[in-house]
Design a protein around this nucleic acid. Sequence first.
DNA 1: CAAGAATGATACGGTCCCGTAACAATCATC
DNA 2: GATGATTGTTACGGGACCGTATCATTCTTG
Lengths: 113, 113
Amino acid sequence: MPPGLTTAQALKLWHDVNLAMVRDAESDLSLRQMTILLTVYLEAPPHTVRDLAAKLGVSKPVITRALDSMGKLELLSRRRDDKDRRNVLVQRTVKGALYLERLADTIGNLSKT
Amino acid sequence: MPPGLTTAQALKLWHDVNLAMVRDAESDLSLRQMTILLTVYLEAPPHTVRDLAAKLGVSKPVITRALDSMGKLELLSRRRDDKDRRNVLVQRTVKGALYLERLADTIGNLSKT
DNA sequence: CAAGAATGATACGGTCCCGTAACAATCATC
DNA sequence: GATGATTGTTACGGGACCGTATCATTCTTG
């Protein structure tokens, strides 16, 4: 529960982290993709396409396509739900966890300056 | 100079702000565009295409195109440099300042939770 | 003033994401 | 078991961004 950042601190932090991501040229995730990834890793499972679409306020094809592209990158994986085979369960991966760990380090370090 | 955020705090903050931007469906700036905008508003002028390209580690056409699209949105404006008419000076606008002010509020508020 | 360097813009072909509308598979209900 | 609802996926046309190469304009240097 940190104290709220001041306006100047908030913008500087946002700038610094964004700049680090641009220069890395490896975090080529779109805003929506990044949000999906973080939601899956931070909130409790299960995560279905429908739930994610509702949470983000976007259409289902947006989620499907994001899962396609992030699945290729192995940042997330899909599995059919055996209880209800209409559902798809979105699951975490080792690569995804490492990716977010690295992101957290970047944010954490830059928030100190 | 706030204390560095913990890993969990950093990711939660990043998630919350990203989620707010996705749901707003108005912050449709790419990562590079956002970084350019913040650089122009946070760092001291003058800002030329060449300087911005070097700072972000991208090619000049990337900057030119970003200035085109953000110029249409009136988040930034361009002016020729009278001292050296090869240069283009990137300048702030009222709309851009309001946009970032709103962004800072979002970040600041979410960093409190 | 002529030749070269520097700056920003443009052209081209390609890739990715978008929104909408249809679709196949699975479940629920009667 | 047939009908309708639900879930996720695919199809299609369109728009935005990318990287590279090339260009016009302006300055610098001999």
